[in-house]
């Protein structure tokens, strides 16, 4: 008889995390495409502090030459993979660690980017805010998942070899 350890998380966590990740993928894809084509084409009102183009074309819209939108897309795609049913079923510890690190990095980056928007660019990008809300929500879901996940011991009967 052998023993296997499996982690179970409620189904809603799998669904919510994947949905949020895919939403982030969609938003960051749109921001990335417009970054490389015409940032002025972003569907976004230009009223007062709301000005998407100003944010997405500011000097803070790139980090070491890489567009923040593209970095966000990479983050979202990786997060979607980690939050897929395969990711949640995975017994590999690094998947769990990766998911937690990505979620934490996302939340911390949100604080930084909101600071940049408010105090450096002096404008808010609605599409970026959508990504920010998604990232914080994902952070919460991942934390809850870790809290409620439980290890269960599943005993499976296997024939023993007699010696």
């Amino acid at each position: 008889m052998t023993t296997e350890r499996t982690r179970t998380v409620p189904g809603w966590i799998t669904t919510a995390s994947l949905a949020l990740s895919m939403l982030a993928v969609g938003l960051t894809t749109y921001l990335t495409v417009t970054h490389y084509t015409d940032p002025g084409a972003l569907a976004c009102p230009d009223t007062g502090i709301v000005n998407c183009t100003l944010v997405t074309t500011s000097s803070w819209s790139e980090v070491f030459g890489a567009p923040v939108a593209l970095l966000g897309l990479v983050w979202a795609v990786t997060m979607a993979a980690a939050c897929s049913p395969w990711g949640w079923r995975s017994e590999a510890r690094w998947v769990d660690t990766l998911r937690m690190v990505l979620a934490t990095a996302g939340a911390v980056t949100v604080v930084y980017l909101v600071y940049i928007e408010l105090f450096r660019v002096d404008a808010i990008c609605l599409w970026c805010t959508g990504v920010h809300l998604t990232a914080v929500a994902l952070f919460g879901v991942i934390l809850v998942a870790r809290a409620v996940s439980r290890s269960s011991t599943v005993r499976q009967a296997k024939p023993r070899h007699s010696t």
Binding site: A107, V114, F119, F139, G140, L143, A147, V148
Partner: peptide, 27 residues
């Protein structure tokens, strides 16, 4: 456990609210 796990999320939201408050009050 769930509420405890959400404490970091609360801190993130607190930081965001603080940024908005500082901005609106002319930091």
């Amino acid at each position: 456990p769930v509420l405890g796990a959400l404490v970091p999320v609360g801190l993130v939201l607190l930081a965001l609210v603080a940024l908005v408050v500082v901005k609106t009050t002319g930091g």
